[in-house]
């Protein structure tokens, strides 16, 4: 349902994506791993048009992703995004954050949006925090609200951009738990992450990216347990055994 073919992207003179070709099937969970600065996040940001790309083509459900075309709104309502730093709207309560899109973009009725919004907050375990503003929530709670906000758009896929990297270690589990439940429910997910345990247990496939190219890809367990490429082996060794 998400197709990337030979995608190139430069920031000024630095080419961060050097021909990425990949696809994500419906219901699949794909984790993207790799060193920082390798272009992982840029791939996600190109998929929902937060970033433009220079060459190649990205399509979502057959719809070409072009951030300057009006069709980008349609792409974004189908592919939601969860950010590393949550990016919740601080001037609105948790519930208001969740129903903002349904109310103002999808123009759902108030009654329906509120009902679904409360149900979604319950689904991420935050029913009792509906009327709290984000600054009063912990990082883990904020990220779960952000996941509920993404779900509220009833997307066909969700992109996660290092969703646990800004969290205190003891809060990571709550967020990963919610994500695992989503995966079990059949949500299509693309996750940029450093959580190798999550990638191994939850992902169907893993892409290892370095220097703007896909160095190695394959079934999650196989790739993480027996990486073939020396760069993958080196990266995994450093991540799993930092000492």
């Amino acid at each position: 349902m998400i197709e990337l073919s030979d995608v190139h992207k430069s920031f000024g003179k630095v080419e961060v994506l050097k021909g990425i070709t990949a696809s994500v099937q419906k219901g699949e969970v794909v984790c993207i791993i790799g060193p920082s600065g390798s272009g992982k996040s840029t791939i996600l940001r190109c998929i929902n048009g937060l970033e433009s790309y220079d060459r190649g083509e990205i399509s979502v459900e057959g719809l070409k992703v072009d951030r300057d075309a009006s069709s980008i709104v349609k792409v974004r309502t189908q592919v939601s995004m969860v950010f590393q730093r949550f990016n919740l709207f601080p001037h609105r309560t948790a519930l208001e954050n969740v129903i903002e899109g349904p109310l103002y973009v999808k123009r759902e009725s108030h009654a329906q949006a509120f009902e679904r919004g409360r149900a979604l907050l319950a689904r991420v375990g935050l029913a009792e925090k509906a009327d709290v503003h984000p600054p009063q929530l912990s990082g883990g709670q904020q990220q779960r609200v952000a996941i509920a906000r993404a779900l509220a758009m009833q997307p066909k896929a969700i992109l996660f951009d290092e969703p646990t990297s800004a969290l205190d270690p003891e809060l990571v589990g709550d967020v990963l738990g919610v994500m695992r439940k989503l995966a079990d429910d059949g949500m299509t997910m693309v996750v940029v992450t450093h959580e190798m345990g999550f990638a191994r247990d939850v992902a169907d496939r893993v892409l290892f990216i370095d220097g703007g190219v896909i160095v190695e890809q394959g079934a999650a367990k196989a790739l993480l347990n027996q990486p073939q490429h020396p760069r993958t082996q080196d990266f995994l060794r450093r991540v799993l055994h930092p000492l």
Binding site: R76, E100, Y104, V105, M153
Partner: peptide, 8 residues
């Protein structure tokens, strides 16, 4: 970006 990502 968050606003854009929900289609605003």
């Amino acid at each position: 970006e968050a606003a854009q990502s929900i289609g605003m």
